[in-house]
């Protein structure tokens, strides 16, 4: 009975102002799409890392922005290419980053590990590039696509590791 009354009332409203319905629907749609959205604008970052022209197929590219507290890594693919992807989407928050390139992370099982595994050497990632302080690489991420290719050189590392 109550349902019927509600339906009848709604029918009367509908008959009197049928034009209002599409307007209401459009407003509702606008409201729903207007809410939420990404928390921060990201600039897409990708590129390729090479050592004396040869692709570096294993390793991490690390992007650090101390002002924002963003410390993000990207894995190198077999052809030396990478693309940064955060939880919120592809890219990095806009700003200036220090960049370093390091060997990949090593995982060892838990338990009493008294003899650590011998670390693999990565001669194609000179020590200079492994730390922000010495790499000399910076990237300013802007809205849209950012390409950042790095070609590492051996000679430069020898000169810098002494300092």
């Amino acid at each position: 009975m109550v349902t019927l009354m509600v339906i009848t009332a709604l029918r009367d409203i509908y008959r009197r102002c049928a034009y209002a319905l599409p307007v209401a629907l459009v407003l509702l749609g606008l409201c729903l799409t207007g809410c939420g959205g990404p928390r921060e604008i990201l600039g897409k970052v990708s590129g390729k890392v090479t050592f004396q022209g040869e692709p570096v197929s294993e390793g991490l590219v690390i992007f650090s922005n101390t002002d924002k507290g963003v410390y993000m890594t990207a894995k190198l693919g077999p052809d030396g290419s990478y693309a940064v992807k955060m939880a919120e989407g592809s890219g990095l928050p806009l700003g200036t980053y220090q960049v370093s390139i390091t060997p990949p992370l090593v995982e060892v099982p838990l338990g009493p590990m008294l003899t650590p595994p011998k670390p693999r050497a990565f001669p194609n990632i000179p020590p200079k590039y492994r730390r922000n302080e010495t790499s000399g690489l910076t990237l300013t991420v802007e809205q849209g696509d950012n390409t950042f290719d790095v070609d590492m050189e051996k000679r430069a590392s020898a000169a810098n590791s002494r300092s």
Binding site: S64, G69, V70, Y71, M72, T73, A74, M86, A87, E88
Partner: peptide, 8 residues
């Protein structure tokens, strides 16, 4: 920050 693969 919920990016698995960020430093640390």
């Amino acid at each position: 920050e919920k990016s698995w693969g960020a430093v640390g």
